[in-house]
Design a binder for these strands. Structure first.
Lengths: 197, 197, 197, 197
DNA sequence: CATGAATGAGCCTTCATTCAT
DNA sequence: AATGAATGAAGGCTCATTCAT
């Protein structure tokens, strides 16, 4: 089945080339023509590989999350297993790729907005798409965090993710966001304390 | 004499009736026709009161933030002035109006997306609009928080707002978001500890 | 009948205050609101004095042509009655008010364009409006010219007017139109020669 | 392979089919929808070939002027090279296509009006568009005239064009314009005399 | 498989005119 | 007489998607 492999492979490649454009322009504002142009194919071909704009996005997002988690784990596996070091490692990683994650958050949100008002989406569809893909990815991320920190308290992983999202959000509309480091300090202390209870 | 209408008053009324629709449908997806219909006026009349869709949004946002801060302060002024109680009060308030604030966050973000790609906006314009209105409102909110908590550390107010935003964000794409209370607990402990340093 | 006099007088005043705006912005692009604002009255009042935008224009044009002819005749009545001097006088006058006449031509043309496609205008209407008002005013102008030059050849007056219109036209889209004087020279020679035949 | 279409060729065809409609209805009043309908394509397709209404017009005008000059030169190349004959040839040609040229003038002017009030156009833009396209085309026409007449005096070519424009203008709002021939006579005499100096 | 021309509903905004006050 | 709020059709333009080639 060589052809099938090729297709999958090609799709992945297209997907990863798409990210930049989604990040720069946003899900809502990007046009299929722009996307096709960037990928140096025609719109027709684009539709040959993906059934819709939405499908491209959904596949892109899933791909990225997997990649990011893997990427982090490879980079941070040798960090000492005490809580403080590992929470720091997570936040350092976030900080290091701050702009990238901001962009990723942006496109998630953008997509979310576009879906919001679609009234003609049947409930079944919804349960398999949009909102819930985020839920699933969120859960996976939290589990990865907790696993990495070797703790069982779901709320703590959730707290960390919540906080990171909040941080990225602030950075989004405060380009000169100053208190990143200070806030990270607070978080680390908080987590260390909580996990000792 | 023309029909007597208090323009300012009427504008405020239109604005507050707009909120619901913006929240339901989103800034990007709402159409001026829908908005006019909902307000039971013609598009022409809508444009008689507001110069553009963007202007409606900007005025709406500013209005809301002021109103919410005021609203909170009235409701929470008699809370004992110790940190724990007051942080709790803030989070209770947020929790109480959780859906409302989620919607508000939604429309902020939606608007933010729409602006993102507008490259032909001169720098002067930008510094007086879009992004920076969020910066300004954020700052005002943080100051209100710190003032209410009677603390001077800007980072702490920032941390709380960051966290709240993160929380609202999580709720956004996890409709059944479970760990709200648990996370709030963690936050309160963290803040209490930090402020004792 | 003092009221009637007032109305007429007021209308004339409004009309003359309108010219500038028509000239600056053009018949097609000017809005009734702008016009009302400039005249410091409300749109309602404007409609109280004139039944429509078109009516304002038509009355304005007629007013202006009369005024300009009168104005010229007063200024140029003492010029010696030989052809060369008098043709020169006409062209000097045109030259002196070159910008003004350019603007006037502009608004004539602008109005003309707006009418062109109106298919639902019955023939009777047409014969009393638009095109024909220009015909009438043109004839009046030519007659005034010929009368002033004391000649009977209608074609010569026509030729002069044609030429002046052409000149103004060139100036319109050639802001740095250079050969005005040279062309005027040619015209004068031509007229002198013709009239001697 | 996509549907094979020679874009350039197709554009030219669309352009020439557009002329009639522009002439009948005018630049300002024509709508893209009308235009598309007349060309029997959708508005989307129209925008597929031309970026804007203005672009259509600009390309149309340039095309027409080139075509007309060429057309004239072919038809009139064997006219004897004395001034009188050749000036006559030019005016005969104009006369012959009198209605066509009137329409062309009409749409030029109409476009000119629409541009007039656009103040937010940066100076660089202006110097490359609108007004100046007329300047350029005017210059080309004058040069073609002088070249055809084998004279070097720019003012004379200018005079002829001025006069022709004036003539067309008169005809515009005097549908029964009578003195065309008489005025042409005068012009020819004038030119002959001038060129002998 | 690939192409890109074609579609048309829908978007934000404008403006002459009307009419309640 | 005077006001200005209200109307709504219409304008230029966009873009996800389809389909003949």
């Amino acid at each position: 089945m060589p052809k099938i492999v090729d297709r999958k492979q090609y799709r992945k490649q297209l997907l990863s080339e798409s990210f930049e454009l989604f990040a720069e322009i946003g899900y809502g504002k990007i046009t299929m023509r722009q996307l096709a142009q960037k990928l140096r194919i025609s719109t027709g071909t684009l539709y040959h590989y993906f059934p819709s704009k939405e499908a491209i996005f959904l596949q892109l997002v899933e791909e990225l999350v997997q990649r990011d988690i893997t990427h982090f784990l490879i980079q941070a596996e040798s960090v000492p297993p005490d809580i403080r070091s590992r929470v720091s490692a997570i936040l350092d990683f976030t900080q290091e790729h701050r702009d990238y994650f901001s962009k990723q958050l942006t496109i998630w949100l953008d997509y979310y907005q576009q879906q919001a008002g679609e009234e003609d989406v049947s409930k079944e569809d919804l349960s398999q798409r949009s909102t819930t893909i985020f839920e699933k990815l969120d859960r996976e991320t939290i589990e990865a965090i907790n696993n990495y920190l070797q703790i069982n308290n779901y709320a703590i992983g959730g707290f960390i993710l919540t906080f990171i999202n909040g941080l990225l959000l602030c950075q989004l509309y405060q380009p000169n966001f100053k208190s990143w480091d200070a806030q990270v300090e607070i978080l680390i202390e908080a987590i260390v304390l909580m996990s000792n209870k």
